[in-house]
Design a protein around this nucleic acid. Structure first.
Lengths: 178, 178
DNA sequence: AGTAAATTTCAGTTTTTACAGAAACATCCG
DNA sequence: CGGATGTTTCTGTAAAAACTGAAATTTACT
């Protein structure tokens, strides 16, 4: 697919930024491309447009599917799958948060809980263990709060999230009204 | 510093998880150590406790200072600096969010704004550019909302943030009351 | 089932990142 | 001003990640 210059340079700039979000260069480029372009694209079109190997595109698409920010479309009477990005940034946001929680928070919570148990059951009742336990407990509480928040976010409609984000400090006054 | 077995294994497990948060192994280990331990530690103590090179500790401390999740203490009459971690997870959370915004969101916003301008001023009024522009504009709006949210978060007291996170879906009912 | 197209997996190469140890630099004491 | 202690920077090496091109596998149509 022939891209005009502005879009091409946007994709490159986007990709450079997105590497900081845990995607590698190719993954980020593909996502930017699919997000900006209107029509679904096949793997081959993507590879050709970006000038990277098919195998690279294949693996990258799998990663992006894993993040739930692109979708595959099966066209009847055509073996080639087509790919589209989620076009709504708020939906995208929800997907990314969901996956971040699943991959990064959940295992961390597990580890923290285990450690807490081990420390609580340990015979060693020295100052160091006591302090570590307090710290771990604090972290566990924080993670509980975060998990509750994540769950809420998943169930909230886009418009609600938007209002929620605008709310900020006003929450103080509001909670008094409940 | 001699650590007991539970704490040592916790540090290692913690570090393994924290690499997913953008710290490398050593940085994550140092942070876990300082977070769990009560007393401030010198660079040398840290290096020795974790069994890594001083140079490595030096660089890692700089990174952690950059994230504002540890602090250096100058002890009078002693050349050696000591290091402590932020002990309150909510404060830590604020720091990390602040730095994430500064490093990742802000440059991204700049790039998106530039691209938006370029696309709007471009002569090419084809379907592709139109669609890309809509997508970019959408992203720009989203980033505006996020930035507002970040700013709010920085100004909120810990207890307020906690309430805010618990609020979730109830925001719908509440905003009607404003 | 046969087969051509589409996709994935694999092996090897390049690039990037993490780290150790040494050298250079800075600081504070007498 | 030495000189000892403490810290950072630099250089080389090891480890990890990204990527290509080819081979193997899957898919869906005849």
């Amino acid at each position: 697919m022939k891209l005009n210059k502005e879009i091409e340079s946007c994709i490159m700039a986007w990709a450079e930024n997105a590497t900081r979000w845990g995607l590698n260069r190719t993954e980020a480029q593909i996502h930017a491309l699919l997000f900006l372009v209107e029509t679904p694209m096949t793997m081959e079109e993507i590879a050709e447009t970006l000038g990277v190997a098919r195998s690279n595109v294949s693996n990258s698409l799998k990663v992006l599917l894993g993040w739930r920010i692109i979708r595959a479309i099966n066209v009847r009477g055509n073996r080639r799958k087509q790919y589209v990005a989620l076009k709504d940034v708020w939906e995208m946001f929800r997907s990314v948060v969901y996956e971040q929680k699943r991959r990064n928070i959940d295992p961390f919570v597990g580890m923290i809980k285990d450690t807490r148990n081990k420390l609580e059951q340990s015979k060693a009742r020295d100052a160091m263990s006591e302090h570590a336990l307090r710290q771990i407990a604090q972290m566990a509480d924080f993670l509980d709060a975060s998990n509750y928040w994540f769950a809420q976010l998943q169930s909230m409609a886009t418009e609600t999230i938007r209002q929620y984000m605008k709310l900020g400090n006003k929450v103080l006054k509001l909670t008094k009204l409940i």
